[in-house]
Design a binder for these strands. Sequence first.
DNA 1: CTGTTAGCGCCTTCAA
DNA 2: TTGAAGGCGCTAACAG
Lengths: 339, 339
Amino acid sequence: MKKAPTLEDVAREAGVSTASVSRYLNMPDLVRPLRKEKIEAAIAALGYVPHGAARALASQRTHTIGAVIPTFDNAIFARGVQSFQRRLHADSFTLLLASFDYDLEDEVRQVDALLTRGVDALLLVGCMHSPKIYERLDKKGLPYVHTWAFDRSGAKPCVGFDNRLAARRAASYLIDIGHSAVAMIAGITGGNDRASERAAGVREALEERGLALLPEYYIEKPYDVSEGRSAMRQLLAQDVPPTAVICGNDVLALGALLECQARGVSVPRDISITGFDDLPLTSHLQPSLTTLHVPAGEMGRRAAEYLLARLGDVPMPDSTELEVGLIVRGTTAPPGRQK
Amino acid sequence: MKKAPTLEDVAREAGVSTASVSRYLNMPDLVRPLRKEKIEAAIAALGYVPHGAARALASQRTHTIGAVIPTFDNAIFARGVQSFQRRLHADSFTLLLASFDYDLEDEVRQVDALLTRGVDALLLVGCMHSPKIYERLDKKGLPYVHTWAFDRSGAKPCVGFDNRLAARRAASYLIDIGHSAVAMIAGITGGNDRASERAAGVREALEERGLALLPEYYIEKPYDVSEGRSAMRQLLAQDVPPTAVICGNDVLALGALLECQARGVSVPRDISITGFDDLPLTSHLQPSLTTLHVPAGEMGRRAAEYLLARLGDVPMPDSTELEVGLIVRGTTAPPGRQK
DNA sequence: CTGTTAGCGCCTTCAA
DNA sequence: TTGAAGGCGCTAACAG
């Protein structure tokens, strides 16, 4: 393992001071063209690559932004993160990604790890986090942003959407087309404000219309197709099955739909199903899935822009609410079509 | 932004030397229990968090490992990366993730970025990369590993599987059960050795059995459900449609299956379909998808163990080949069942 | 086991 | 515009 060339080596090779090379690297405009060329030549000749840690130590800036997400294993996070990273990269920032498997205590550890790595800013998923996280962040005065949720109080910087409102939209739609026996297959709500807000939204919407979300019509399941299936099986086995099922995400909805098909229950004739996320796959299903479109890509991009702006002291509103539109497709229809 | 407490502050607070605090942090066993407690108290009192860049600069080790993947937006990479990260984390290493959107030139840039960040080791996807990458890596003597592929020459460190062999397995199976009109919907093979090896495997297997992969039976498509659909549409429109279609991945296979269903083509009665990856979803489809099981989780874990071993100077073979098993499910059957 | 001390590679005043 | 020089926070000999 040969020793890598340092900035000092470059300076010597180019016959200039280290300060000039440093300037060339960071503020090229302050260096005269002639010197510039010499430095460029030296860098190329030596194959010099800047040493990030040294740079970070000296400048107290890492040009790195962290994101702490529940899991990589979820298409919808993947999409958002992908565009978050793309946007950061455009400003030559690097993304440091960590996941915590929905374990809120582990999330604290992951945040600590990222702070140790010296991230300049942080993206968080959801608005519900251990107070310890805010403590650490605020203590360092580190910019951060919440995503995949929206805090109406305005107390927290958010680039996201209102999960409750979106879920209400799905529920209202079903009620509007005539459903009253509405069930919900929710994601696990413990420690997950996206999931719990969605559940709350459905409950609210029903109650406002004089309906109720019956206990036997409410099931929580982990994010997995087979869990969606088993939940639907449970619902179908009841004396009076629901005529519509709102799912907390598309994966559960897909499971629910597949279960119906496996049992010869016709969708949407016998039962309506809605999802949440609008995964690319859902529009191709037969019937195609009625769902809520989450603008994950835009959210990732905007979250990046918010953090970049904060780091650059560019003014920018602390909250950006994005729309979650209901995409009505083939899995929903008025009830009572049973002959 | 208050100045964060440093190791020196901790030392002062605890009434010991900075060296002791450093030792406590890195080799706790070398510190006497009494001092240990004092130091722990001081750390807690001050809310001290180590400064990663300083540590990296002084120790020439970042405890960070990079992974450069084609895209986040693919469930199968997500799974592998998730377990890679989990394993790294168990040894308190951090994962630095970058993606390059299947642009081989961008991959070079991403590798450079990671090198600047000072990763201690690197995970690469596939065995086909710009020579520049190997140049940089070898120059620094940085440990790296190839995944999602397997190099029989043994020249490259790999933890992966033989894509060609796996694809052959699927083709052979179809021939064995009587198919001779076999088509393939491959992923884009340009700059992607996983996709091209799979295509090559299918071609080989057919030719060995005296069959051929007809040009009109070979279609390349991007990773997307709708692309799989359009490819299948194209295949179905031919004068003599194939009786079996091998897909380069499950997403294309899913699209192919959905297209058949949308057009009333019965699977597997009229046509057989196979996938590649074994996404969780595929076993729930109706019919369930015959596919090749890629052990992404195990691969990620083992790749991490390989790199960790190299960093710790623990001996470990440079190549680990994993099995890709054919999972025969409902989308395949002998041909000619058409009445 | 513990303290002293010299860097790690770069940035950033400060003067010139 | 440029160069000189003092750290940034921590680790790793080395001496004790």
